[in-house]
Amino acid sequence: MPKITVLMSVYNETPAQLRAAMDSILAQTETDFELNVVLDQPKATNLHQILDEYARKDRRVLVLVNEKNSGLPYSLNRALDSGTAPMLARMDADDVAEPQRFERQLTIMEDRLLDVLSTSAKFIDEMGKPAGEHDYIPEKPKQLARLLPLGSPLVHPSIMMRREVVVKAGGYRLLPTAEDYDLWLRLLQQGARIGATNEKLMKYRLRGNSMTSGDRYKVFLVSEYLQKTYAAGKFPEAPVELADLKDYLDANGYDNPAIRDKFNRRVLNLSAGKQALRAKKPFTAARLIVPGLLNQAVRRYARHSRLYNAAYAHYARH
């Protein structure tokens, strides 16, 4: 039995990005792993050919192909169920892992008795060029246990976690987005120790199509729903029902393009308004901020952001 099962889903990455991700995993200094790759776009024959090539060359690579596009959580569960290792490691098919990533994560998890560990990351653009780095992540389980109910600073594709706690929580649920945040909250509810390291063991690729205006609103609504559910103590004894979540999304008009676009514009204006305040331009700031705060969803977003940022600032200092 290998030490680690790597969970990777492939959808619309470029051949070069996929090869870079695969090469970075197969070059790990910790070599005792299985790499379970799920192709979630069966019509992508070019990507399928690349994956088959790697599987022929390295017995640690298992390629699974979904019959149709089924989404990230479904694909991750399929990779999880097809593996046997006691440790699980996430990896996205367009990111690059540093060679010592797995070795360092195993050491840190054992030293700190963690169930889940996120690393930090450097950012790269679509061409692989440096594009900044991730903000500081509070590292201690007690800090994250208080911060995660307000929002997540964790880097999902860098995560390593113990299979037993993930299986006990029921794995990833088939949510329309924020499936990782849903899992962190359920793991917290069952007492899992979630930690982080600020070692930058990943190169996280920023892609131009990673967040559309519709996605932004959906992520906010799903995250808000999960936070309310967690606060009410409904995990894991009474899991989120997808029908209830759908009702919540429908009630907030998430499928209405006009509502989504207005939310996105006004959230961006809030950020621009804060910059105007820092630049001592109060009238510009008011013009940008006030219309957004007249919108109920944007007010909720601003309140959530304020609470999260205050908590984050506190734990970042400690």
Rank of each mutant, 00 (worst) to 15 (best):
Y312A: 04
A27G: 13
R60S: 05
A272D: 09
G171V: 07
R162I: 12
L39A: 04
Y315S: 09
K43A: 14
Q17D: 13
S158M: 03
L117Y: 01
E98K: 15
V298Q: 01
Y54H: 07
A231Q: 12
A85M: 04
R207P: 01
L221M: 09
T45A: 13
E30P: 09
L148C: 08
L293D: 04
L76K: 07
L39H: 02
M87C: 12
L187K: 02
K140D: 08
L268M: 14
E34H: 06
N69P: 10
R146L: 09
A27Q: 13
Q49M: 12
Q296M: 08
V165R: 06
L175H: 03
Q100D: 15
Y136H: 11
D255W: 00
K234T: 12
V96H: 05
H48Y: 06
T107C: 06
K168F: 02
D125W: 00
I259R: 10
V267K: 08
M211N: 11
A131S: 09
Y312N: 04
H304Y: 05
D135A: 14
R173W: 05
L18Y: 02
N12R: 14
A276W: 06
S305I: 08
L64I: 11
A44Q: 10
D58M: 02
A302F: 07
D92L: 04
G171P: 14
G208F: 00
L144N: 01
A311D: 05
G214V: 03
T45S: 12
K228N: 07
L154K: 04
Y230Q: 06
L106T: 12
G132R: 04
R56Y: 04
E139Q: 12
A276F: 07
L294Q: 13
A27D: 15
Y11K: 12
D94C: 08
K274C: 13
Y254T: 06
V10R: 09
L7A: 13
Y312S: 00
S82K: 11
M8A: 15
L206P: 12
R19Q: 14
N252K: 09
G132L: 05
G253V: 05
L206R: 14
T14R: 14
D244Q: 09
D250L: 14
L221E: 03
V155P: 01
D261C: 09
Y11P: 13
R303H: 05
G132W: 02
Q17E: 15
T84C: 11
L51N: 03
A55T: 05
S152N: 06
E139A: 09
D135V: 10
D115P: 12
G151C: 00
H48N: 13
A316R: 07
N309I: 03
V167H: 01
N252Q: 13
R265V: 12
H304P: 02
Y217R: 14
M109N: 02
S152T: 15
I259S: 11
D215F: 12
T229S: 05
P2Q: 04
N66F: 06
M160P: 10
V63D: 04
A21W: 02
T197S: 14
A251R: 07
L114I: 05
Y172E: 08
K57G: 01
R112P: 00
E133T: 10
L187T: 03
A55K: 04
V38E: 00
L114G: 00
Q296P: 13
